[in-house]
Write a protein that binds this DNA or RNA. Structure first.
Length: 502
RNA sequence: GGGUCGUUAACUCAGUUGGUAGAGUAUCUGCCUUUUAAGCAGAGAGUCACUGGUUCGAGCCCAGUACGACCCA
């Protein structure tokens, strides 16, 4: 049984001691990993019911609870021991005394290590200092732990270990647990919100023959039986809009996207995106919906629609959001006189003056976007909808009725980052085909992020897609915001890391 | 891709001018019946990330590599 551990010569003295202890237990016919303990109460329930109950009442009640959890601290006095038991909902102090358990059970109990998972039957009392504590009547080892937990006071600090061994991080870092519980709450609230609004959740392909819906480098893979190249999706957009053609008028998907790009505090190669589409709505309707959705999720998850982020208070309350056109933002926030970015040659000069390169034949919209990224985006701390993006960089967006060079599209920014991207959908198949053709030209010119031609998508539009608006929201970034996390890795359970060496 | 910083016991960290590797926690032994970062006494525990170089001598200086963090692109 222990050969698996023995075979690795990484055994340090602590692990050796535990293996020896485990062998002793086996010699005494103690099962190290039984699965017959039935718990009837969780620690959270004890706190909810008895946090304010006084000592006399507790002792008079003489309850009998069956708890199970991990031993996370240990204070022994010889014939009496205190420890903390932790389960998914919290931790509570447990008291075990030789005189209550009997010599035999107590000897067995004394072999417990920090990290072991145990079952306890007992009642509640209060110690001299008034702490709610479980008095042990019966004790059972449920799972032997062979490895020591990190320092009880400092916890696990090494971020690399925290990510590589997230299971340990979750045991010893309360904040980590809180973040991922909040993440689940965020996703749950988004679903509830959209379901209430009449949206239907769907699942569309993660493996696509033509990766579409975003400007990004895809991961490539191969299907053996069909002997075909496949891409991990960079967005679900084109499939969700096919569903609008099919008559599902309000759809959404919360799922993973994959982009073969750099890793940073803001980017993980796989990340979670909410995309939703609503027929007979336009991008302005989505601004209203977004304010409602974000403020509601923030309230449900953090208790307030004003949330702290890295020292700033971000106000997500409905009505507190700024709406500004792309050009106005370059002028008013970026501080650029209009003529410096409206005219192509001048815009090129402005970009170069900022130390940025300009590629051969690069479109005006792209150059403006570069200026925006440098001069405007970092300054958008409070929620801002920036709308009317250049058509050049919006190949799936509907053109503005008055000005075909801009689209009815917005991006949502806050804390200096993009949080969402939305637009009135382009449903004119002729225009769409032309835009794809333009993208193909850019691809051939060397832009490996440009869109592929998707004939079937154009064919779908030819059947007629109702006018609609759609939006993508980066869930990881939303969770970062609502948990005040500086790095995306803090909100992804198992972020991508290079393989461990040694 | 570039720059800066980091990697020492299971965990958190010291380590002086280059001269035999340190602490706290955890572990082990002993004492201890209301502690909670329990306490007291003692003990064990190290491929100083890896490879090479300089040197009589390297955790420390130099070069490279790996992994990570942060900043920039």
């Amino acid at each position: 049984m222990l050969t698996a551990l023995d075979a690795r010569d990484e055994l340090n003295s602590v692990i050796k001691t535990r293996v020896e202890k485990a062998c002793q237990l086996l010699d005494e016919n103690i099962h190290l990993y039984p699965n017959d303990f039935k718990r009837d109460t969780e620690i959270e329930t004890l706190w909810a019911r008895f946090a304010d109950v006084d000592a006399e009442t507790l002792e008079a009640a003489d309850h009998d609870f069956a708890l199970a959890g991990r031993v996370v601290s240990y204070r022994s006095f010889g014939k009496v021991t205190f420890f903390h038991l932790q389960d998914r909902g919290g931790r509570i102090q447990v008291y075990a005394a030789r005189d209550d358990l009997g010599v035999e059970q107590y000897q067995l109990f004394k072999k417990t290590d920090i990290g072991d998972i145990v079952g306890i039957r007992g009642s509640l009392f209060r110690t001299k200092t008034g702490e709610l504590t479980v008095m042990t009547r019966q004790f059972k080892l449920i799972t032997k732990s062979m490895r020591p937990l990190p320092d009880k006071y400092h916890g696990l600090k090494d971020v690399e270990t925290r990510y590589r061994q997230r299971y340990v991080d979750l045991i010893v870092t309360p904040r980590t647990k809180d973040i991922f519980m909040a993440r689940t709450a965020v996703v749950g609230e988004l679903r509830r919100f959209l379901d209430e609004k009449g949206f239907m959740e769907v699942e569309t392909p993660m493996m696509q023959a033509i990766p579409g819906g975003a400007t990004a480098k895809p991961f490539e893979t191969h299907h053996n039986a069909l002997d075909m190249k496949l891409y991990m999706r960079i967005a679900p957009e084109l499939y969700l809009k096919r569903l609008l053609v099919g008559g599902f008028e309000k759809v959404y998907e919360i799922n993973r996207n994959f982009r073969n790009e750099g890793i940073s505090t803001q980017h993980n190669p796989e990340f979670t995106m909410l995309e939703f589409y609503c027929a007979y709505a336009n991008f302005e309707d989505l601004m209203d919906l977004t304010e409602e959705m974000f403020s509601r999720v923030a309230e449900k998850v953090t208790g307030s629609s004003v949330v702290p982020y890295q020292g700033e208070m971000i106000d997500l309350s409905v009505g507190a959001w700024t709406r500004m056109s792309f050009h106005d933002s370059l002028e008013k926030i970026g501080g650029l006189p209009r003529e410096m970015f409206v005219d192509y040659e001048q815009c090129k000069a402005t970009v170069r003056a900022r130390g940025e390169k300009v590629a051969e034949g690069e479109k005006l919209g792209k150059l403006q976007a570069k200026l925006f990224d440098i001069l405007v985006e970092p300054k958008l701390i409070q929620p801002h909808f920036i709308y009317h993006y250049p058509t050049d960089i919006s190949p799936l967006s509907r053109r503005n009725e008055e000005n075909p060079d801009i689209t009815d599209r917005f991006e949502l920014f806050m804390t200096g980052r993009e949080m969402a991207n939305a637009f009135s959908e382009l449903n004119d198949p002729v225009d769409q085909r032309g835009r794809f053709e333009e993208q193909v030209r850019e691809k051939e010119a060397g832009d490996d992020e440009a869109h592929f031609m998707d004939d079937d998508y154009v064919r779908a539009l030819e059947y007629g897609m109702p006018p609609a608006a759609g939006q993508g929201v980066g869930i990881d970034r939303l969770v970062m915001l609502l948990t005040d996390s500086a790095s995306i890795r803090e909100v992804i359970l198992f972020p991508l890391l290079r393989p461990e060496v040694g």
